[in-house]
Amino acid sequence: MSTNKGSKPFYLKPPWQILFDLVRLYKMNPWDINIAYLLSTFLTEMKKEGFIDFAASGTALLSSSVVLRLQSERILKMEEPPKLPQLPPSEQIPPPLQLPFRYEFTSTTIENLLTALEEVLKNESIQRPVKLTPIELPSPDFFKEHDRFFAEIESRIDEFYNVLKNMGTEEAIPFSRLVQNKSKQEIVRIFLLLLFLASKGLVDLFQEEEFGEIYITITGKVEEYERKPTTT
């Protein structure tokens, strides 16, 4: 059975026309379209025409796949858990800082000023003047005697060495024995003479304990020193 030339093909009439209008198809609810009914009736009407329109059949098949895809997307969307409403981030505003309150201007009376001045004057009167003790310089004779000692150092070394020999060469002589009842100046000179003798190897100086007594022993170089001519 053939259609008239002036009439529309059956698939452009309701209810099959939805399969050939994709713009309207996307706007409709896919679950409102009975795709099984449309395809079965479409095949029945196509058989009644007596020939198969492959272009129309392909368009109907494409529209059917689109409807099935839209239905599947709706099902998957329903299975997704609902999204929690996103609350705006809460900004925690810190409490205001309590700044120290400072007075920049103060009121002062004349009585307060007079009282403060009296206290300052009292404190100054209480303070005792500082007494400066002058430094006593040694007399010029001290420097003269000091220079004379170093000028005659060689002869003094010989004299002191003879004193040590007369005290005995077998036992160690304690330093405290040499400086007994001596002044500080004489003690320093005796110690210097001992250092000169020790540098020449004529005496040995030793201590049995730290900061203890200093002992002096005459070495075996006595004979060599005695052979040398003495300077006058």
Rank of each mutant, 00 (worst) to 15 (best):
V120H: 05
K165H: 10
L132E: 01
V163R: 08
E208M: 04
F191M: 03
A116S: 10
E159I: 03
R189F: 02
K83T: 03
D141Q: 13
E159K: 07
E124S: 15
I173T: 14
L195S: 11
V163S: 07
P100H: 09
I173P: 02
P82K: 10
I135W: 02
F142I: 12
E170S: 10
F143C: 07
F206I: 03
S176F: 00
S176H: 05
S155A: 11
E159S: 10
T108S: 10
A172K: 12
S176T: 07
L121A: 13
P88G: 13
L137D: 13
F150M: 05
E124A: 12
E136N: 04
I173Q: 08
K182Y: 01
P138Y: 00
F105Y: 09
F196K: 05
F101H: 14
L87Y: 10
P129D: 14
L84E: 08
V203M: 01
S183L: 03
F143V: 05
L194W: 01
R102W: 05
T109N: 10
R177Y: 08
E118P: 00
T169M: 12
P129S: 13
I135N: 15
S183Q: 13
K200A: 04
R156K: 12
F175T: 08
P129H: 14
F211S: 15
I135E: 12
Q92C: 06
P138H: 02
L137T: 09
